[in-house]
């Protein structure tokens, strides 16, 4: 099970994830702000790239192991590693120890790292962070499969979201169903992936929400792409952006300077 983050830990390493680094750095900055609000000093170890899931899930175990070793090397000096993605956190926490289990040197290092890996909302909730943000919206939250089943994150994002002023949370049906992203799955089996995304989008729309939140950028890119293709006005954001009150950037897949419906003027924050 997940070890509890110590309230004495002041330095945390942020594992940005390759998708956030490339597509949406604002999530990374929102995560930094939230961690600082929680009393942490944030470092971003420079040796990090990607957690290695594309190789691991494609069956390229050799590359996955090499990337895992590089990531462990980059992160292991730090007392806590926080990841704004359940999927990448799950890779570090659940899969690195398994990948490297038979290695006398790397096995113990992978297990030691795994004990200190946290998904962002899980870490923030465990530190008891009080959210000070205001976003006028009716939101719904999508659980990523890895957050839910590999990281056992379910209540933490909801507890934090419930503290955002003027924001209401409407739960969608079938919260445990996958959105159809699945990494390379969505390009290998585009039609099947689309059918899955369509069912998820139907559930999202049925809530009447004007804001879709999730903790994993992979799912968010998939669902934003699907919603925007259909001409939906539902704004799509990573939960960290809303918790940090940093909604000045346009929502995912949108142009312009922020979403007027989300009350940029009312953004709180410390």
């Amino acid at each position: 099970m997940t070890s509890q983050p110590s309230s004495k830990v002041d330095t945390v390493a942020l594992f940005v994830t390759c998708l956030v680094d490339l597509f949406r750095p604002s999530i990374g900055f929102a995560a930094v702000k939230l961690l600082e609000d929680a009393g942490c000093q944030v470092v971003v170890p420079p040796g990090q790239t990607c957690c290695g899931q594309p190789a691991y899930n494609s069956g390229d175990r050799e590359s996955a192991m090499a990337i895992a070793q590089g990531t462990i090397l980059a992160l292991e000096a730090h007392p806590a590693i926080v990841v704004p993605s359940g999927s990448c956190a799950g890779m570090l926490k659940r899969h690195y120890p398994e990948l490297l289990a038979d290695d006398m040197n790397w096995g113990p290092r992978a297990r030691s790292l795994a004990d200190r890996v946290f998904e962002l909302t899980q870490y923030l909730a465990a530190r008891g962070l009080r959210i000070d943000a205001q976003v006028a919206a009716r939101a719904t939250y999508h659980d990523s499969c890895s957050s839910l089943r590999e990281m056992q994150v379910k209540e933490a994002p909801r507890d934090l979201i419930s503290q955002v002023r003027e924001l209401s949370l409407a739960e969608m049906a079938e919260t445990e169903a996958c959105c159809g992203f699945g990494g390379t799955f969505c390009v290998k089996f585009p039609d099947v992936s689309d059918a899955m995304a369509q069912r998820k989008v139907d559930c999202i729309r049925a809530t009447g929400a004007d804001l879709l939140l999730a903790g994993d950028l992979g799912c968010l890119l998939n669902l934003a792409g699907k919603l925007k293709r259909a001409g939906s006005t539902i704004a799509v954001r990573h939960v960290a952006e809303v918790l940090a009150g940093m909604t000045a950037q346009p929502a995912i897949g949108e142009s312009g300077t922020g979403d007027s419906r989300m009350g940029d003027s009312g953004v709180g924050g410390k």
């Binding site: 940005v16 956030v20 680094d21 490339l22 597509f23 949406r24 750095p25 604002s26 990374g28 900055f29 971003v44 420079p46 585009p190 039609d191 992936s193 689309d194 995304a197 890119l221 998939n222 934003a224 792409g225 699907k226 925007k228 293709r229 950037q249 995912i252 897949g253």
Partner: peptide, 13 residues
Amino acid sequence: HRDLPAPQGRTFQ
């Protein structure tokens, strides 16, 4: 089946 949301322009790192 879907649009591809574009990167914001500069990487986080």
